[in-house]
């Protein structure tokens, strides 16, 4: 019978932690950048400007209807043909941002649409411009309305980021792959890797609920 041997895995645990730390950093960056993209996309989508609407639609549909791995390959292997060269880590970050942006656009658009028309009219009646209405009156309640969807999309992003190991970015999965080819302890390596992903997911869930409760602390309804 197979003899479990975690020793080499724990001996090289720091390489896994370095990979995990990279995954966390890359995911957080992609989330923040992707969130900005999402907000722009959603605002463009709800602006009533036809051209913006069509452009955002095209972006969202392309990203949501193609495999993430192919998107990464396109950015890393395809774009150099146009003279756009990136390191694996840069390409990974860009791919994650673009991907999150498309899903986030749809989520935030739903949030903006959930805002009562009267809110917007009251803000206009005070004399706020269209951008001010969005910025001060619409965005926060809109984000609150879709916060759960947004956070689970982020967890997807973080877990999905394991795919970037395919272009040898230095994330947790890549660290696991490296360790595996050194030790051949596949079961142990991937069990520990899985456990680290699981813990990161849990940690992010907790962090998001704390952030949510702080930032969206205002009461609604009666």
């Amino acid at each position: 019978m197979y003899q479990f041997n975690f020793e080499p895995v724990f001996a090289a645990f720091d390489t896994l932690l370095i990979g995990a730390w990279f995954t966390i950093q890359m995911s957080c960056m992609a989330m923040l950048l992707g969130l900005a993209v999402s907000i722009f996309g959603a605002v463009g989508k709800t602006s009533g400007v036809r051209l913006l609407n069509v452009l955002v639609d095209i972006y969202v549909e392309i990203i949501r209807n193609t495999p993430f791995l192919v998107q990464i390959y396109f950015i890393f292997f395809g774009l150099p043909a146009l003279g756009i060269r990136m390191s694996p880590n840069q390409a990974a970050l860009l791919a994650l941002t673009v991907n999150f942006g498309a899903y986030g656009t749809e989520i935030i658009r739903a949030g903006i649409n959930s805002i009562n028309r009267g809110q917007i009219e009251a803000a206009q009646a005070i004399g706020l411009s269209w951008l001010q209405v969005l910025r001060y009156v619409v965005i926060k309640p809109a984000l609150r309305a879709v916060y759960p969807a947004l956070t689970s999309q982020f967890i997807f992003l973080m877990l999905g980021s394991s795919v970037v190991s395919a272009i040898s970015a230095t994330d947790l999965t890549a660290a696991g792959n490296d360790l595996n080819s050194l030790t051949f302890a596949s079961f142990e390596v991937y069990l520990v890797t899985t456990a680290i992903y699981l813990m990161m997911s849990i940690a992010f869930s907790i962090a998001f609920s704390v952030i949510g409760r702080t930032w969206f602390a205002y009461p609604v309804n009666r």
Partner: peptide, 17 residues
């Protein structure tokens, strides 16, 4: 609009402020 104040049936206060 700055010169004109408006009060709505549904109040329309901003809930997050």
């Amino acid at each position: 609009r700055r010169e004109i104040g408006m009060v709505f049936q549904q109040f329309n206060l901003f809930p997050h402020m």
